[in-house]
Every structure is written in structure tokens, then in C-alpha cells.
Design a protein around this nucleic acid. Structure first.
Length: 126
RNA sequence: ACUACAAGCCAGGCUAUCGACUCGGCUAUUUUAGUUGGGUAGGAAAGUCCGGACAACACAGAGCAAUGCACCGGUGAAGAGCCGGCUGACUGGUAACAGUCAAGAGACAGUGCCACAGAAAAUAACUAUCCCGGUGCAAAUCGGGACAAAGGUGAAAACGUAGGGUAAGAGCCUACGGCUUUUGGUGGUAACACUAAUUGCGGGUAAACCUUGCAUGUUGAAAUGCCACAUAUAGUACCGUUUUGAGGACUGCUCGUCCAAGGUACAGGGUAGGCAGAUUGAUCCCGGUGGGUAACUGCCGGGACAGAUAAAUGAUAGCCCAAGACAGAAUCCGGCUUACCGGCUUGUAGUUUUU
RNA sequence: GGCCUCGUAGUACAAUGGAUAGUAUAAGAGUUUCCGAAGCUCCAGAUACAGGUUCGAUUCCUGUCGAGGCUA
């Protein structure tokens, strides 16, 4: 039995260079609280990162809270996208930025993450 | 028992499911994967306001400048911290005394400023007063002299009171008192206090410039060392190369000393991966026992202490107490300041009840 | 992580330590006009907060809070 809902080091976007590349010439779209950057990578596999602006959330506690909620929502719903990528043997780099100014509830984070991931899988297929 | 103040400690807990980082064991293996056990935010982690540790560079200095500090003693690695004392101001009190606060050296080195009001804000002038002389019956006025007491405005006004003195006055003189300079004595480690003689008595402001004394080498873990990978010893402009010195270090400036053959600017190219630094140290807590008024500290025994690197320490659900505040490590410590729902302990003061 | 600068009416800016804190514009009222705009007259409005120095702080000093910038 292989674990499904993991988020280890291999699945996070850790290279500073890769992140700069992603912001420089990656594609992007917006779903209300999120701005999503994505870019096809050389290696197969799905890598994810999350960020919050310190202008919208001045306290570090709030920024941590939002990032943790986003990671959790992603961890529980990424499976479909991951399977898709495995079938087509491509890699994808992902970065989510939270652009809202209020502290969100977990339900909103969860629903919007589902929407965003669905849109991603659609655009990958094309 | 309640209320107020001060000091110290704690900073929700448990269960289930799914995760993250890290350390140790085991299995496969030697990049890694799986499994099992342990650990995983703070009292302020914050502000970056002080002080250090540590690291790199420098150590050839002199002068100037800059910045900071400023009663005394102690504490400590150190400090603009803390503790104790002295002095001053304010508050309470009849007083003894108690409490709070103090950037608490110098305004007899010099310069500046002191609105409005007031004669005048520091030179002593002006008005007024008094004396002598001229004119005049007088009032008054003119000239010469005396003196700095009177002028009631202001936040601030030329030691205070009484007497003498004088033409009128004045520390001009005397007595008492206040402050001050210098010297001595006593007590105290010292600041200082008391006391004797002596010198004088024209304001405030140094968180105005400043003077005096003391201190400060510069830069901060994105420091620094090592390994790996990659490229362009190419181009343009200016300056310079052994007697002539571009530039650099001490160094913020000047002098001086030393190094010196490449340096600066523009445009462009490459890399930005890993390991160390890095988490156990002037550490914190508990118990016992000494020293000290206290801050603090000696000895003995026991226990505790995250380490990430795009950055972990979490999410969901339920239950309990009764509703969880402020808030998230980024090299590490000691302090200060600020934010904060509550709970516990100790001490002091007050009120009420019982014995 | 380290360092620096600045907070004044709604807005943009002034003010040597001296008291009615000024100017422009916006807002409000009036006047003008058939109605409006422009013009004219009037009016209300602020020193980020808390302490200290000073006779007296927008100004000087200290501490908070906020905003902006530099450094890789």
C-alpha cells in the first residue's frame, strides 16, 4: 500500500533557480484568492510551493497560518493531477500566491484549491 | 475570605485520522527507500534600544574631526543594565520621617538666545532723586557733579531683615541669616555630612553652540573557510607601470608609513549546488548548604535544552476545564522597552467575620 | 539579517524655540445667473501617540506606533 497524501521534500519546489525561472517565463492564471504560476519542467514529477505577501499580512503568525492551510489543502487534493502527469510522463512546477487580505477559513481554501487544480489538469491536457 | 500593589512561576489539556523537519536503531542497500522509537517554537521568539561572545581584515603612528557617556561605591564577561548610598526637586506629615522622580560635570573660558510686557533681560543706559552754580519773586529751565537704592512688568530684576550712616542714597558699615571661593579638622572606601577660619555676593538656558574628563579600529553569519560546477586570458573608453607611481591599506580628513602592476567605468557572459560556521552555553530549572543589606555569587546532587534553508514545528473532528490573549526561532547570549486572556505562589497594606 | 529617512487641515506643501500654526485646492453657507460653471464674501477644519528639558515646544531629547527607502 503506497501512501497517497504525502508532501515530502521531493514534492516541494526547493530550488531558488527554479522559482526564479517560474516567475520569469511561467504561465499564470488567477482564481479569486490565489494567483497560480505553473511551468513544465524537464524532470518528470510535480513540485509545489506556496507564498503570502507580507504587505497583506503583517504578522508572521498570520502568514504561517495561511501557508499551512494552503499546503494542507494541496496535500489532500493533488492526487488526480499527479496521476495525470504520471501517465503523460511530464513534469510541472507550481507556485501558489495568496492575494487576499483577510484571514481565510479552511473551507474556502479547500474549495478554491479544488477549482484551481481542476483548471490545471484541463490546461495540461490540451 | 475579599480588594489593591509588588515580585516570581505557568501560558489550555486529551483522543482519533492524515502529514512536515530532525536524531538514534533495524532491514534492503551504499545516491536512497521502508520500518520503529525519541525530540520539535517564546515570555516576550517582537522592537533592534544598549552591552558582549564569535568571525574576517588591520595592528606604525601623530594631529584633527565624529559619536557616545558624565554624583559615589558595588555587581557582573560587559553596559546608557541592576543593587545600595549621597545630593537636589516634588508630594504627604506639626516633626521625626516616608514615598516618587532626576541626561545628577561646567553658565568665574568664550559665543549666542531670552517673544509679549517692562526704564532695563545683563553693557549698565533712561526716568526720577540729591547737591552746587546761572536765569527767575516762585514754579520751572540750563550747565556741572553724586549714585546705582526707587521704577511692579514679567517665568525670571541686581543677597534678605533690622539699625547706623549721608546732601540724598546704596553691603557703604554693623548684627543675625542665606549662598559661595579657598584652606584646615572630625566621620565615611567614596560621593558627601558636620565644624572652624577665610574670600566674596549681577539671572536663566549646555535635551543652544561649546569646554573639561573618559571611552570607541572597521565590517557583520547574506561574516568567513572548504569542496563541486560553469564561463570570455574576448570588447570599448580613461588613467598608469621600476628616477616620474594609476590605485590600495591604516582611515572619516590631513600628514606619515607600507604595498603596488594593473586599476576604474560601460556593455556583455557564467554561477548562485553542497558541507562546515550551527546549536551544550558567561545556559536554565529544582533541592540542599555557605557569603553579601542587596544586585549577585561559591560548593554538592538531580534534571532540561528546536535547528529549518523557499524555510519544518501543522490540519480536521470530538470531548473536558470553561472559552485560550499577545504572538512564530533564522549565529548565540546578558539586559532594556513594548504587546498580552487568564491561572498559581509569596510578601505588604486595608476591610469584614470567627476563635 | 543590517542601516537610514519621514510623519502638520480631506489632499499637496510652509513655518528661527515665542501662542490666532500659514498658503493653495477640495468641502459647506451666501452673493452673482433664467439655471449652472467661473468669480467674489464668509465659515469650519490639523502638528501621529506618550513622557521629559524649557517661562514657553510643530521645532530639542527619549520611548512607542505607522509609512517609505538603501543594502544581497
Amino acid at each position: 500500500m503506497v501512501k497517497q497524501f504525502t508532501l515530502g521534500k521531493q514534492e516541494r519546489l526547493k530550488s531558488r533557480k527554479a522559482i526564479e525561472q517560474l516567475f520569469k517565463d511561467g504561465q499564470r492564471f488567477t482564481i479569486t484568492p490565489y494567483r497560480v504560476f505553473y511551468r513544465k519542467a524537464g524532470k518528470p514529477g510535480l513540485q509545489f510551493g506556496a507564498g503570502v505577501s507580507s504587505k497583506n499580512f503583517k504578522k508572521a503568525v498570520d502568514r504561517n497560518r495561511v501557508k499551512r492551510l494552503m499546503r494542507e489543502a494541496y496535500r489532500l487534493q493533488k492526487n488526480n493531477l499527479q496521476k495525470h502527469l504520471k501517465d503523460s510522463n511530464t513534469g510541472l512546477n507550481l507556485f501558489f500566491i495568496y492575494t487576499g487580505k483577510e484571514l481565510p477559513s479552511y473551507d474556502i481554501i479547500y474549495e478554491k484549491m479544488a477549482l484551481a487544480l481542476q483548471k490545471l489538469t484541463d490546461s495540461i491536457e490540451q
